[in-house]
Amino acid sequence: MTDTPGWASPGSSEPPRDGVRPPADAPAAVPGPSAPPQATPGWGTQYGQPHHGGQTPGRGPYGWEAARSPRPGVIPLRPLSVGELLDGAVTTVRRHWRTALTLSLGIAVLDRAGAFVAQLLVRGRTGASTQLLTLLASLPLTLLLDALAVALLTIVVSRAVLGRSVTAGEAWRDARPRLLKLLGLTVLTTLLSGGVILLGFTPWLGYSAGGAGSRGTEGLLFLVGVLTVPVGLWLLIRYSLAAPALMLEKQGVVTALSRSRRLARGSWWRIFGIVLLSRLLAGIVGATLVIPFRVIGLLLGFGSVDRFGDTSQQSIGMMVLTAIAGIIASALATPFLAAVSVLVYIDQRIRREALDIELARAAGLPEQGGTGGSGPADQTTAGR
């Protein structure tokens, strides 16, 4: 059974508002979410047979009883708390570590190799702007590899939610037809968010490059640049669900951006908090790995303590050690962050479009007897 029915976007032009479920007697959208049968012992005990005030027995704060939610894969099929979402991302990496780490490790090696070459090309020749020029020199390769990582790991996470595994070769075959569109989407979203910030700081950079300028004017121009940061961040979160929509719903670039905008509407702060928390956790892991390698480099004589934070004058040995630490950190962080992004997208669709019902069907969970007949429904089914 394919997972296409679960991921297809709903046929209606406007999804339900957050927290509003489709009524049980509403006609099913094709191929979008539909209502479960009301007479089945399992599904019916959770969704059907409303009583006083239209409430159903056993409903929790999201209209469910959490303990009876089906769980074919790494998450229960219901609206997720932040902790459950992060746990689902970690579980995905842990349960499917061979595929996830194989893909992320290969991409991390290419990414760090490109950054290493760029750093060698500009090292010691550009003064204080070395780090900025290194970033700009490696940006095209970084965007390409980011798109590749998102494409491949989205396939892994989407299968993990349904309780299925996928090899690296299968992920590549499924993701390959969408790669060019995803690359275009990645470039476009980078320009939308980063371009706004860069445009805001351009007057300050130009004025500062002139040398003999007023400090007051320079400070004012810098403040203008700072004020564009929230705008760029707002755009980044607003369109953060476009990549999963493009990959899983097989949307075009413009349609995927529109889907992300609608799914994130009214949930910007929640998505922002999840993204910020996940990146903080990934950053802590990365720093925990990089600092020991830097210390080892100091002990081996590859650098000095007074230049510990200066990357523009690193020795070749220190650059190699830092690159190795970066590869390890990226190989661990990339699948985790990709899983968080996909699970946020799934959570938003569950909250707005009752995607959990379609996912349960795509996972092959029986509707007759469903979650109520044979033990706790929150246990992961076989076929992991």
Rank of each mutant, 00 (worst) to 15 (best):
V122G: 06
V122E: 07
G127P: 10
G127S: 07
S129F: 09
T130K: 07
Q131Y: 15
L133H: 08
T134N: 14
T134L: 04
L135P: 00
L136I: 09
A137K: 05
S138E: 02
P140G: 00
D146H: 12
L148E: 07
A149C: 07
V150I: 03
L152P: 00
L152F: 03
L153I: 03
T154I: 06
I155M: 11
S158E: 11
A160S: 07
A160I: 01
V161L: 01
V161F: 00
V161A: 01
L162A: 13
S165Y: 02
V166K: 12
V166R: 12
T167H: 12
A168Q: 06
E170K: 14
A171R: 14
W172H: 14
W172A: 15
R173V: 12
R173M: 10
R173K: 13
A175W: 09
R176A: 09
R176G: 00
P177W: 02
L179S: 03
L180C: 01
L180W: 08
L180H: 04
K181C: 02
K181F: 03
K181A: 11
K181L: 11
L183I: 15
G184P: 05
L185E: 01
L185A: 04
V187R: 01
L188R: 04
T189A: 06
L192T: 11
L192I: 14
G194I: 12
G194K: 11
G194V: 13
